[in-house]
Amino acid sequence: MKKAAAFLFQLAFLSALYYGSEFLVSWLHIPIPASVTGMVILLFLLSKGWVPVQMIQSGAAFLNKHLAFFFIPIAAGLITYGDLIQSDGAALMAVIAGSSVMGLLITSGLSSALAKRSREKA
């Protein structure tokens, strides 16, 4: 019973964080999705130690385990844009592929630079 209550609390905390970031984004008119803003806020809270990892660990693991389930509505929504995909699909795929490659290159470059800095400090 105690584990179930802790699990529900973790899900409620993560949900409150998301809805709080959704409110913040709409109130401040920030052009960043609320989910990304919420993750940045959660990263800040975790890095400062204000929220221990154990406080969200099982709830976050559950959500990650079932992540594919959350993409079903998005995929179903794409069906309504069949004409757009048919006419501009190649351009959309080029933008998606290009931005993915750019994100990978930036991430790998940043990771390499941080690893090098870490080795130099040690």
Rank of each mutant, 00 (worst) to 15 (best):
Ser100Ile: 15
Gly77Asp: 06
Leu84Gly: 15
Val40Gly: 05
Ile56Cys: 05
Gly103Trp: 03
Ile41His: 01
Phe70Ile: 03
Leu110Glu: 09
Gln57Ser: 12
Phe69Ser: 09
Arg119Asp: 07
Asp83Phe: 09
Leu63His: 03
Ala12Gly: 07
Glu120Met: 13
Phe13Cys: 04
Leu110Cys: 07
Tyr18Asp: 00
Leu92Cys: 05
Met93Lys: 12
His66Asp: 00
Thr37Phe: 04
Glu22Leu: 14
Ile72Gln: 01
Gly98Cys: 08
Ser58Arg: 14
Ser111Gln: 10
Ile96Thr: 12
Ser87Thr: 14
Ala122Arg: 13
Ile30Phe: 06
Gly59Ala: 03
Glu120Arg: 14
Phe62Tyr: 13
Ser26Cys: 06
Ala94Arg: 10
Ser47Pro: 00
Ala90Met: 10
Ile74Asp: 02
Phe7Met: 12
Phe9Arg: 11
Phe9Trp: 14
Ser21Gly: 07
Thr80Leu: 15
Pro31Phe: 04
Ser47Met: 11
Leu24Cys: 04
Val101Asp: 01
Ala34Leu: 02
Ala34Ser: 15
Leu78Ile: 07
Phe23Gly: 06
Trp50Val: 09
Ala115Arg: 12
Lys2Glu: 11
Ala75Gly: 10
Leu78His: 03
Ile79Thr: 09
Leu92Glu: 02
Asp88Asn: 13
Thr37Met: 15
Arg119Thr: 07
Met102Asn: 02
Ala122Gln: 13
His29Phe: 05
Gly77Met: 03
Thr107Gly: 09
Pro73Tyr: 03
Ala75Leu: 15
Pro52Gln: 07
Gln10Trp: 00
Leu45Ala: 13
Ser47Phe: 09
Leu114Tyr: 10
Val95Lys: 11
Gln54Phe: 08
Ala75Met: 14
Leu46Phe: 02
Met39Asn: 07
Gly49Tyr: 00
Leu43Lys: 07
Gln86Tyr: 12
Lys3Leu: 11
Ala90Gly: 02
Phe62Ile: 00
Leu8His: 00
His29Thr: 06
Phe7Ala: 03
Phe71Asp: 08
Gly77Gln: 06
Gly89Phe: 00
Asp83Gly: 11
Asn64His: 08
Thr80Asp: 05
Met39Gly: 15
Met1Phe: 09
Gly20Thr: 04
Met93Gly: 05
Gly109Leu: 11
Gly49Val: 06
Ala4Ile: 15
Tyr81Ala: 11
Phe70Lys: 06
Ser87His: 13
Val95Tyr: 04
Leu11Phe: 03
Met102Lys: 07
Arg117Asn: 08
Phe62Asp: 00
Met93Glu: 06
Asn64Val: 05
Lys2Met: 09
Phe23Pro: 02
Ala16Leu: 15
Glu120Ile: 10
Val36Lys: 04
Phe70Gly: 11
Pro31Asp: 04
Leu43Glu: 00
Met93Ser: 13
Glu22Met: 05
Gly59Ser: 06
Ser99Asp: 02
Ile85Arg: 08
Met1Ser: 14
Leu17Asp: 00
Ala94Lys: 15
Leu45Phe: 08
Ile85Thr: 05
Ala115Lys: 14
Leu46Val: 04
Phe13Ile: 01
Val53Glu: 10
Ile79Phe: 12
Ala4Thr: 13
Ile32Met: 12
Trp50Ser: 08
Ser111Met: 11
